[in-house]
Nucleic acid binder design. Structure first.
Lengths: 209, 209
DNA sequence: CCTTTCAGTGAACGACTGTGCACTCAAAAC
DNA sequence: GTTTTGAGTGCACAGTCGTTCACTGAAAGG
Protein backbone atom coordinates (compact mmCIF):
# COMPACT_ATOMS: atom_id res chain seq x y z
CA UNK A 1 0.00 0.00 0.00
CA UNK A 2 1.48 3.28 -1.05
CA UNK A 3 -0.55 5.75 0.93
CA UNK A 4 1.26 9.04 1.01
CA UNK A 5 -1.10 10.45 3.61
CA UNK A 6 0.00 12.22 6.73
CA UNK A 7 0.05 10.88 10.27
CA UNK A 8 -0.06 7.23 11.16
CA UNK A 9 -3.47 7.44 12.86
CA UNK A 10 -4.92 9.14 9.84
CA UNK A 11 -3.58 6.50 7.49
CA UNK A 12 -4.92 3.72 9.67
CA UNK A 13 -8.31 5.33 9.81
CA UNK A 14 -8.24 5.72 6.05
CA UNK A 15 -7.57 2.04 5.37
CA UNK A 16 -10.18 1.10 7.94
CA UNK A 17 -12.72 3.14 6.06
CA UNK A 18 -11.50 1.67 2.77
CA UNK A 19 -12.14 -1.81 4.18
CA UNK A 20 -15.63 -0.81 5.26
CA UNK A 21 -16.38 0.69 1.85
CA UNK A 22 -15.06 -2.33 -0.01
CA UNK A 23 -17.01 -4.71 2.24
CA UNK A 24 -20.19 -2.71 1.75
CA UNK A 25 -19.73 -2.78 -2.01
CA UNK A 26 -19.05 -6.49 -2.16
CA UNK A 27 -21.83 -7.42 0.25
CA UNK A 28 -24.13 -5.32 -1.88
CA UNK A 29 -23.79 -7.81 -4.72
CA UNK A 30 -24.07 -10.90 -2.55
CA UNK A 31 -24.48 -10.80 1.21
CA UNK A 32 -22.44 -10.31 4.32
CA UNK A 33 -22.36 -14.06 4.98
CA UNK A 34 -20.84 -14.74 1.58
CA UNK A 35 -18.12 -12.17 2.06
CA UNK A 36 -14.52 -13.22 2.26
CA UNK A 37 -11.75 -11.46 4.05
CA UNK A 38 -9.46 -12.02 1.11
CA UNK A 39 -11.91 -10.51 -1.36
CA UNK A 40 -12.10 -7.38 0.74
CA UNK A 41 -8.38 -6.98 1.25
CA UNK A 42 -7.75 -7.64 -2.44
CA UNK A 43 -10.02 -4.75 -3.34
CA UNK A 44 -8.49 -2.46 -0.76
CA UNK A 45 -5.01 -3.33 -1.98
CA UNK A 46 -3.59 -4.79 1.20
CA UNK A 47 -2.48 -8.27 2.11
CA UNK A 48 -5.08 -10.58 3.76
CA UNK A 49 -3.42 -10.67 7.15
CA UNK A 50 -3.43 -6.89 7.42
CA UNK A 51 -7.19 -7.13 7.90
CA UNK A 52 -6.63 -8.20 11.49
CA UNK A 53 -4.98 -4.90 12.27
CA UNK A 54 -8.42 -3.33 11.98
CA UNK A 55 -10.99 -5.95 12.89
CA UNK A 56 -10.78 -9.05 15.04
CA UNK A 57 -13.23 -10.90 12.82
CA UNK A 58 -15.68 -10.48 9.96
CA UNK A 59 -18.50 -10.38 12.48
CA UNK A 60 -16.94 -7.27 13.96
CA UNK A 61 -16.71 -5.74 10.49
CA UNK A 62 -20.41 -6.47 10.11
CA UNK A 63 -21.25 -4.67 13.33
CA UNK A 64 -19.22 -1.67 12.21
CA UNK A 65 -21.24 -1.62 9.00
CA UNK A 66 -24.44 -1.70 11.02
CA UNK A 67 -23.25 1.34 12.97
CA UNK A 68 -22.37 3.21 9.82
CA UNK A 69 -25.64 2.33 8.12
CA UNK A 70 -27.71 3.43 11.06
CA UNK A 71 -25.82 6.68 11.14
CA UNK A 72 -27.28 7.27 7.66
CA UNK A 73 -30.68 6.20 8.85
CA UNK A 74 -30.62 8.56 11.80
CA UNK A 75 -29.64 11.41 9.54
CA UNK A 76 -32.78 10.58 7.62
CA UNK A 77 -34.94 10.60 10.73
CA UNK A 78 -33.55 13.99 11.64
CA UNK A 79 -34.57 15.29 8.23
CA UNK A 80 -38.00 13.72 8.54
CA UNK A 81 -38.61 15.55 11.80
CA UNK A 82 -37.38 18.77 10.29
CA UNK A 83 -39.65 18.42 7.28
CA UNK A 84 -42.61 17.57 9.52
CA UNK A 85 -42.41 20.84 11.39
CA UNK A 86 -42.92 22.66 8.13
CA UNK A 87 -46.41 22.99 6.78
CA UNK A 88 -46.31 20.69 3.75
CA UNK A 89 -48.16 17.37 4.14
CA UNK A 90 -46.40 15.38 6.80
CA UNK A 91 -46.90 12.04 5.10
CA UNK A 92 -45.84 12.98 1.61
CA UNK A 93 -42.96 14.98 3.04
CA UNK A 94 -41.71 12.06 5.12
CA UNK A 95 -41.87 9.63 2.23
CA UNK A 96 -40.02 12.08 0.02
CA UNK A 97 -37.27 12.43 2.58
CA UNK A 98 -37.08 8.65 2.79
CA UNK A 99 -36.71 8.37 -0.97
CA UNK A 100 -34.06 11.03 -1.10
CA UNK A 101 -31.96 9.40 1.60
CA UNK A 102 -32.34 5.96 0.10
CA UNK A 103 -30.86 7.35 -3.09
CA UNK A 104 -28.00 9.09 -1.37
CA UNK A 105 -27.08 6.12 0.79
CA UNK A 106 -28.48 3.31 -1.30
CA UNK A 107 -25.89 0.79 -0.15
CA UNK A 108 -26.56 1.44 3.51
CA UNK A 109 -30.29 0.89 3.15
CA UNK A 110 -29.75 -2.23 1.09
CA UNK A 111 -27.38 -3.49 3.71
CA UNK A 112 -29.87 -3.05 6.51
CA UNK A 113 -32.74 -4.52 4.49
CA UNK A 114 -30.69 -7.59 3.64
CA UNK A 115 -28.84 -8.31 6.84
CA UNK A 116 -31.88 -7.62 8.99
CA UNK A 117 -33.20 -11.04 8.02
CA UNK A 118 -30.23 -12.89 6.61
CA UNK A 119 -27.12 -11.63 8.36
CA UNK A 120 -25.03 -13.32 11.00
CA UNK A 121 -26.96 -13.59 14.28
CA UNK A 122 -24.99 -10.81 15.95
CA UNK A 123 -25.64 -8.45 13.06
CA UNK A 124 -29.31 -9.37 12.88
CA UNK A 125 -29.72 -8.68 16.54
CA UNK A 126 -27.92 -5.35 16.34
CA UNK A 127 -30.21 -4.22 13.51
CA UNK A 128 -33.31 -5.41 15.32
CA UNK A 129 -32.23 -3.46 18.35
CA UNK A 130 -31.64 -0.27 16.36
CA UNK A 131 -35.03 -0.57 14.71
CA UNK A 132 -36.64 -0.98 18.12
CA UNK A 133 -35.04 2.26 19.21
CA UNK A 134 -36.40 4.00 16.13
CA UNK A 135 -39.80 2.55 16.92
CA UNK A 136 -39.74 3.86 20.46
CA UNK A 137 -38.72 7.31 19.29
CA UNK A 138 -41.56 7.34 16.82
CA UNK A 139 -43.96 6.30 19.57
CA UNK A 140 -43.01 9.29 21.70
CA UNK A 141 -43.33 11.54 18.65
CA UNK A 142 -46.82 10.21 18.07
CA UNK A 143 -47.70 10.81 21.71
CA UNK A 144 -47.07 14.52 21.17
CA UNK A 145 -49.59 14.74 18.35
CA UNK A 146 -52.99 16.41 18.84
CA UNK A 147 -55.69 13.79 19.57
CA UNK A 148 -52.97 11.61 21.08
CA UNK A 149 -54.99 11.27 24.27
CA UNK A 150 -57.23 8.70 22.65
CA UNK A 151 -54.29 6.26 22.36
CA UNK A 152 -52.97 4.06 25.14
CA UNK A 153 -49.23 3.56 25.33
CA UNK A 154 -49.88 0.10 23.94
CA UNK A 155 -51.70 1.63 20.99
CA UNK A 156 -48.78 3.96 20.42
CA UNK A 157 -46.34 1.06 20.35
CA UNK A 158 -48.50 -0.82 17.90
CA UNK A 159 -48.91 2.19 15.62
CA UNK A 160 -45.21 2.97 15.68
CA UNK A 161 -44.42 -0.63 14.83
CA UNK A 162 -46.86 -0.55 11.96
CA UNK A 163 -45.44 2.65 10.53
CA UNK A 164 -41.84 1.45 10.85
CA UNK A 165 -42.77 -1.82 9.15
CA UNK A 166 -44.32 0.14 6.33
CA UNK A 167 -41.33 2.41 5.98
CA UNK A 168 -38.91 -0.51 5.98
CA UNK A 169 -40.87 -2.29 3.31
CA UNK A 170 -41.11 0.91 1.27
CA UNK A 171 -37.35 1.36 1.50
CA UNK A 172 -36.95 -2.25 0.40
CA UNK A 173 -39.16 -1.63 -2.60
CA UNK A 174 -37.27 1.51 -3.62
CA UNK A 175 -33.96 -0.23 -3.27
CA UNK A 176 -35.19 -3.21 -5.26
CA UNK A 177 -36.51 -1.05 -8.08
CA UNK A 178 -34.25 -0.73 -11.12
CA UNK A 179 -32.21 2.45 -10.59
CA UNK A 180 -33.21 4.02 -13.87
CA UNK A 181 -36.93 3.37 -13.82
CA UNK A 182 -38.34 6.44 -12.12
CA UNK A 183 -41.86 5.34 -13.01
CA UNK A 184 -41.63 2.20 -10.88
CA UNK A 185 -40.31 4.26 -8.03
CA UNK A 186 -43.03 6.86 -8.35
CA UNK A 187 -45.56 4.06 -8.09
CA UNK A 188 -43.91 2.79 -4.93
CA UNK A 189 -44.09 6.26 -3.45
CA UNK A 190 -47.72 6.71 -4.42
CA UNK A 191 -48.55 3.37 -2.80
CA UNK A 192 -46.63 4.15 0.36
CA UNK A 193 -48.32 7.52 0.75
CA UNK A 194 -51.77 6.02 0.29
CA UNK A 195 -51.02 3.26 2.76
CA UNK A 196 -49.79 5.67 5.38
CA UNK A 197 -52.90 7.78 4.88
CA UNK A 198 -55.02 4.69 5.34
CA UNK A 199 -53.21 3.84 8.54
CA UNK A 200 -53.58 7.37 9.86
CA UNK A 201 -57.29 7.38 9.10
CA UNK A 202 -57.57 4.07 10.94
CA UNK A 203 -55.60 5.39 13.89
CA UNK A 204 -57.72 8.52 14.21
CA UNK A 205 -60.85 6.41 14.23
CA UNK A 206 -59.29 4.01 16.69
CA UNK A 207 -61.02 3.07 19.90
CA UNK A 208 -58.69 1.36 22.32
CA UNK A 209 -60.24 -1.72 23.91
CA UNK B 1 -26.23 -44.98 -1.33
CA UNK B 2 -27.99 -48.10 -0.16
CA UNK B 3 -31.56 -47.31 -0.95
CA UNK B 4 -33.55 -50.49 -1.09
CA UNK B 5 -36.55 -48.71 -2.57
CA UNK B 6 -38.44 -49.93 -5.58
CA UNK B 7 -38.33 -48.55 -9.12
CA UNK B 8 -35.58 -46.40 -10.46
CA UNK B 9 -37.79 -43.33 -10.86
CA UNK B 10 -38.98 -43.64 -7.29
CA UNK B 11 -35.46 -43.84 -5.96
CA UNK B 12 -34.37 -40.85 -7.99
CA UNK B 13 -37.29 -38.84 -6.73
CA UNK B 14 -36.44 -39.86 -3.20
CA UNK B 15 -32.84 -38.66 -3.40
CA UNK B 16 -34.02 -35.49 -5.08
CA UNK B 17 -36.30 -34.80 -2.15
CA UNK B 18 -33.50 -35.72 0.26
CA UNK B 19 -31.32 -33.11 -1.42
CA UNK B 20 -34.03 -30.50 -1.11
CA UNK B 21 -34.60 -31.33 2.55
CA UNK B 22 -30.90 -31.23 3.35
CA UNK B 23 -30.47 -27.94 1.50
CA UNK B 24 -33.42 -26.40 3.32
CA UNK B 25 -32.01 -27.48 6.66
CA UNK B 26 -28.53 -26.16 5.95
CA UNK B 27 -29.74 -22.90 4.44
CA UNK B 28 -31.88 -22.46 7.53
CA UNK B 29 -28.78 -22.00 9.63
CA UNK B 30 -26.97 -19.74 7.17
CA UNK B 31 -28.38 -18.73 3.82
CA UNK B 32 -28.85 -20.08 0.34
CA UNK B 33 -25.87 -18.09 -0.94
CA UNK B 34 -23.57 -19.67 1.63
CA UNK B 35 -24.68 -23.19 0.75
CA UNK B 36 -22.21 -25.61 -0.75
CA UNK B 37 -22.99 -28.48 -3.01
CA UNK B 38 -20.60 -30.70 -1.10
CA UNK B 39 -22.20 -29.93 2.23
CA UNK B 40 -25.56 -30.95 0.86
CA UNK B 41 -24.40 -34.17 -0.77
CA UNK B 42 -22.44 -35.10 2.34
CA UNK B 43 -25.59 -34.86 4.40
CA UNK B 44 -27.62 -36.79 1.88
CA UNK B 45 -24.99 -39.49 1.73
CA UNK B 46 -24.08 -39.30 -1.94
CA UNK B 47 -20.93 -38.26 -3.74
CA UNK B 48 -20.66 -34.56 -4.79
CA UNK B 49 -20.87 -35.17 -8.51
CA UNK B 50 -24.14 -37.09 -8.13
CA UNK B 51 -25.76 -33.74 -7.39
CA UNK B 52 -25.74 -32.91 -11.08
CA UNK B 53 -28.03 -35.85 -11.84
CA UNK B 54 -30.77 -33.85 -10.13
CA UNK B 55 -29.98 -30.18 -10.58
CA UNK B 56 -27.95 -28.32 -13.16
CA UNK B 57 -26.82 -25.76 -10.59
CA UNK B 58 -27.41 -24.51 -7.08
CA UNK B 59 -29.56 -21.75 -8.51
CA UNK B 60 -31.91 -24.38 -9.86
CA UNK B 61 -32.00 -26.02 -6.45
CA UNK B 62 -32.96 -22.65 -5.04
CA UNK B 63 -35.84 -22.25 -7.45
CA UNK B 64 -37.09 -25.73 -6.54
CA UNK B 65 -37.04 -24.69 -2.89
CA UNK B 66 -39.05 -21.60 -3.77
CA UNK B 67 -41.65 -23.81 -5.42
CA UNK B 68 -41.83 -26.09 -2.45
CA UNK B 69 -42.03 -23.24 0.02
CA UNK B 70 -44.81 -21.54 -1.86
CA UNK B 71 -46.72 -24.79 -1.95
CA UNK B 72 -46.79 -24.52 1.85
CA UNK B 73 -47.78 -20.89 1.63
CA UNK B 74 -50.65 -21.64 -0.71
CA UNK B 75 -51.91 -24.35 1.59
CA UNK B 76 -52.02 -21.66 4.22
CA UNK B 77 -53.99 -19.28 2.01
CA UNK B 78 -56.49 -22.05 1.33
CA UNK B 79 -56.95 -22.50 5.07
CA UNK B 80 -57.28 -18.77 5.59
CA UNK B 81 -60.11 -18.62 3.06
CA UNK B 82 -61.79 -21.61 4.65
CA UNK B 83 -61.58 -20.07 8.12
CA UNK B 84 -62.90 -16.75 6.82
CA UNK B 85 -66.12 -18.27 5.61
CA UNK B 86 -66.85 -19.35 9.16
CA UNK B 87 -68.25 -16.84 11.57
CA UNK B 88 -65.36 -16.34 13.95
CA UNK B 89 -63.53 -13.00 13.58
CA UNK B 90 -61.92 -12.94 10.16
CA UNK B 91 -58.83 -11.10 11.29
CA UNK B 92 -58.06 -13.11 14.40
CA UNK B 93 -58.85 -16.28 12.49
CA UNK B 94 -56.50 -15.45 9.65
CA UNK B 95 -53.63 -14.56 11.94
CA UNK B 96 -54.17 -17.79 13.88
CA UNK B 97 -54.01 -19.78 10.68
CA UNK B 98 -50.83 -17.94 9.74
CA UNK B 99 -49.25 -18.79 13.09
CA UNK B 100 -50.25 -22.41 12.85
CA UNK B 101 -48.78 -22.83 9.39
CA UNK B 102 -45.60 -21.00 10.26
CA UNK B 103 -45.11 -23.53 13.03
CA UNK B 104 -45.81 -26.52 10.84
CA UNK B 105 -43.58 -25.34 8.01
CA UNK B 106 -41.21 -23.10 9.88
CA UNK B 107 -38.31 -23.77 7.54
CA UNK B 108 -40.29 -22.86 4.45
CA UNK B 109 -41.39 -19.53 5.87
CA UNK B 110 -37.89 -18.76 7.10
CA UNK B 111 -36.58 -19.59 3.66
CA UNK B 112 -38.96 -17.20 1.93
CA UNK B 113 -38.40 -14.44 4.46
CA UNK B 114 -34.64 -14.70 4.07
CA UNK B 115 -34.21 -15.29 0.38
CA UNK B 116 -36.82 -12.71 -0.55
CA UNK B 117 -34.26 -10.01 0.17
CA UNK B 118 -30.93 -11.79 0.20
CA UNK B 119 -31.15 -14.73 -2.19
CA UNK B 120 -29.59 -15.09 -5.62
CA UNK B 121 -31.28 -12.72 -8.09
CA UNK B 122 -33.23 -15.52 -9.79
CA UNK B 123 -34.59 -16.73 -6.45
CA UNK B 124 -35.42 -13.22 -5.30
CA UNK B 125 -37.32 -12.55 -8.46
CA UNK B 126 -39.24 -15.82 -8.25
CA UNK B 127 -40.32 -15.03 -4.70
CA UNK B 128 -41.31 -11.50 -5.62
CA UNK B 129 -43.39 -12.85 -8.45
CA UNK B 130 -45.18 -15.36 -6.22
CA UNK B 131 -45.94 -12.68 -3.66
CA UNK B 132 -47.39 -10.50 -6.39
CA UNK B 133 -49.71 -13.32 -7.33
CA UNK B 134 -50.81 -13.66 -3.73
CA UNK B 135 -51.40 -9.92 -3.65
CA UNK B 136 -53.56 -10.02 -6.73
CA UNK B 137 -55.62 -12.89 -5.35
CA UNK B 138 -56.15 -10.98 -2.15
CA UNK B 139 -57.24 -7.93 -4.13
CA UNK B 140 -59.99 -9.89 -5.88
CA UNK B 141 -61.04 -11.37 -2.54
CA UNK B 142 -61.34 -7.87 -1.14
CA UNK B 143 -63.39 -6.80 -4.15
CA UNK B 144 -66.02 -9.36 -3.19
CA UNK B 145 -66.48 -7.88 0.27
CA UNK B 146 -69.57 -5.83 1.20
CA UNK B 147 -68.83 -2.09 0.88
CA UNK B 148 -66.24 -2.94 -1.77
CA UNK B 149 -67.87 -0.49 -4.16
CA UNK B 150 -66.24 2.42 -2.39
CA UNK B 151 -62.79 1.18 -3.48
CA UNK B 152 -61.24 1.75 -6.86
CA UNK B 153 -59.18 -1.07 -8.33
CA UNK B 154 -56.17 1.00 -7.44
CA UNK B 155 -57.31 1.21 -3.84
CA UNK B 156 -57.76 -2.54 -3.82
CA UNK B 157 -54.22 -3.08 -5.05
CA UNK B 158 -52.85 -0.74 -2.42
CA UNK B 159 -54.83 -2.38 0.36
CA UNK B 160 -53.82 -5.86 -0.71
CA UNK B 161 -50.20 -4.79 -0.81
CA UNK B 162 -50.48 -3.33 2.65
CA UNK B 163 -52.04 -6.45 4.10
CA UNK B 164 -49.52 -8.76 2.45
CA UNK B 165 -46.67 -6.60 3.73
CA UNK B 166 -48.12 -6.82 7.21
CA UNK B 167 -48.55 -10.57 7.00
CA UNK B 168 -45.02 -11.08 5.71
CA UNK B 169 -43.57 -9.00 8.48
CA UNK B 170 -45.72 -10.82 11.04
CA UNK B 171 -44.47 -14.15 9.71
CA UNK B 172 -40.93 -12.82 9.97
CA UNK B 173 -41.49 -11.84 13.57
CA UNK B 174 -42.94 -15.23 14.50
CA UNK B 175 -40.10 -17.03 12.80
CA UNK B 176 -37.55 -14.82 14.53
CA UNK B 177 -39.08 -15.35 17.96
CA UNK B 178 -37.35 -17.95 20.13
CA UNK B 179 -39.26 -21.21 19.57
CA UNK B 180 -39.98 -21.75 23.24
CA UNK B 181 -41.12 -18.31 24.21
CA UNK B 182 -44.87 -18.45 23.61
CA UNK B 183 -45.27 -15.12 25.38
CA UNK B 184 -43.23 -13.26 22.76
CA UNK B 185 -45.22 -14.92 20.05
CA UNK B 186 -48.53 -14.05 21.68
CA UNK B 187 -47.41 -10.44 21.75
CA UNK B 188 -46.60 -10.58 18.04
CA UNK B 189 -50.04 -11.99 17.34
CA UNK B 190 -51.77 -9.37 19.46
CA UNK B 191 -49.86 -6.64 17.64
CA UNK B 192 -50.63 -8.06 14.22
CA UNK B 193 -54.34 -8.36 14.99
CA UNK B 194 -54.52 -4.78 16.26
CA UNK B 195 -52.64 -3.50 13.21
CA UNK B 196 -54.92 -5.33 10.81
CA UNK B 197 -57.95 -3.91 12.63
CA UNK B 198 -56.47 -0.46 12.33
CA UNK B 199 -55.94 -0.95 8.62
CA UNK B 200 -59.46 -2.24 8.14
CA UNK B 201 -60.91 0.71 10.02
CA UNK B 202 -58.88 3.00 7.80
CA UNK B 203 -60.00 1.21 4.66
CA UNK B 204 -63.66 1.38 5.60
CA UNK B 205 -63.34 5.12 6.17
CA UNK B 206 -61.39 5.49 2.97
CA UNK B 207 -62.38 8.01 0.36
CA UNK B 208 -60.66 7.39 -2.94
CA UNK B 209 -59.30 10.58 -4.48
C1' DC C 1 19.74 9.95 17.99
C1' DC C 2 18.23 5.79 19.59
C1' DT C 3 14.29 2.89 20.77
C1' DT C 4 9.73 1.40 20.57
C1' DT C 5 5.45 0.79 18.20
C1' DC C 6 2.70 -1.13 14.74
C1' DA C 7 0.40 -1.10 9.78
C1' DG C 8 1.46 -3.77 6.29
C1' DT C 9 4.27 -7.97 4.12
C1' DG C 10 4.93 -12.70 2.26
C1' DA C 11 5.21 -17.51 2.61
C1' DA C 12 3.06 -21.46 4.24
C1' DC C 13 -0.58 -24.58 6.43
C1' DG C 14 -4.65 -27.51 6.06
C1' DA C 15 -9.35 -27.39 4.83
C1' DC C 16 -12.88 -26.58 1.73
C1' DT C 17 -14.93 -25.47 -2.74
C1' DG C 18 -17.13 -26.58 -7.89
C1' DT C 19 -16.49 -29.40 -11.77
C1' DG C 20 -14.53 -32.70 -15.39
C1' DC C 21 -13.94 -37.47 -16.64
C1' DA C 22 -13.93 -42.37 -16.91
C1' DC C 23 -16.08 -45.91 -14.26
C1' DT C 24 -19.74 -49.41 -12.33
C1' DC C 25 -23.64 -52.06 -12.14
C1' DA C 26 -28.59 -52.70 -11.51
C1' DA C 27 -32.97 -51.47 -13.48
C1' DA C 28 -35.39 -50.70 -17.83
C1' DA C 29 -36.16 -51.54 -22.68
C1' DC C 30 -36.09 -54.42 -26.46
C1' DG D 1 -31.12 -62.89 -23.01
C1' DT D 2 -28.92 -59.00 -24.70
C1' DT D 3 -28.42 -54.11 -24.95
C1' DT D 4 -29.12 -49.51 -23.33
C1' DT D 5 -29.74 -46.17 -19.81
C1' DG D 6 -28.50 -43.45 -16.04
C1' DA D 7 -27.97 -42.78 -10.73
C1' DG D 8 -24.23 -43.00 -8.12
C1' DT D 9 -18.78 -43.71 -7.68
C1' DG D 10 -13.84 -42.30 -7.26
C1' DC D 11 -10.12 -39.63 -8.56
C1' DA D 12 -8.13 -35.61 -9.89
C1' DC D 13 -7.73 -30.68 -10.80
C1' DA D 14 -7.19 -25.85 -9.86
C1' DG D 15 -9.13 -22.42 -6.89
C1' DT D 16 -10.43 -20.10 -2.64
C1' DC D 17 -10.68 -19.70 2.04
C1' DG D 18 -9.12 -18.20 7.25
C1' DT D 19 -5.25 -18.05 10.18
C1' DT D 20 -0.23 -18.73 11.91
C1' DC D 21 4.16 -16.72 12.07
C1' DA D 22 8.36 -14.24 11.55
C1' DC D 23 9.46 -10.17 9.02
C1' DT D 24 10.20 -5.01 7.49
C1' DG D 25 10.46 -0.20 7.71
C1' DA D 26 8.71 4.14 8.63
C1' DA D 27 6.42 7.07 12.03
C1' DA D 28 6.09 8.22 17.02
C1' DG D 29 8.13 8.79 21.57
C1' DG D 30 11.92 9.36 24.54
Amino acid sequence: MTDSGASRRERKERTRQAILDAALGIADEQSLAALSLRQVTREVGIVPTAFYRHFASIDELGLALVDQSFASLREMLRDVRRSSSELTGVIKGSVDVLVQHVHERREHFRFVARERVSGPPAVRQAIRHELELVERELATDLARLPHADRWSSDDLRIMANLIVTLMVSTAEAIVAAPPERPDVEREVVRTAVAQLRMVVVGALQWESR
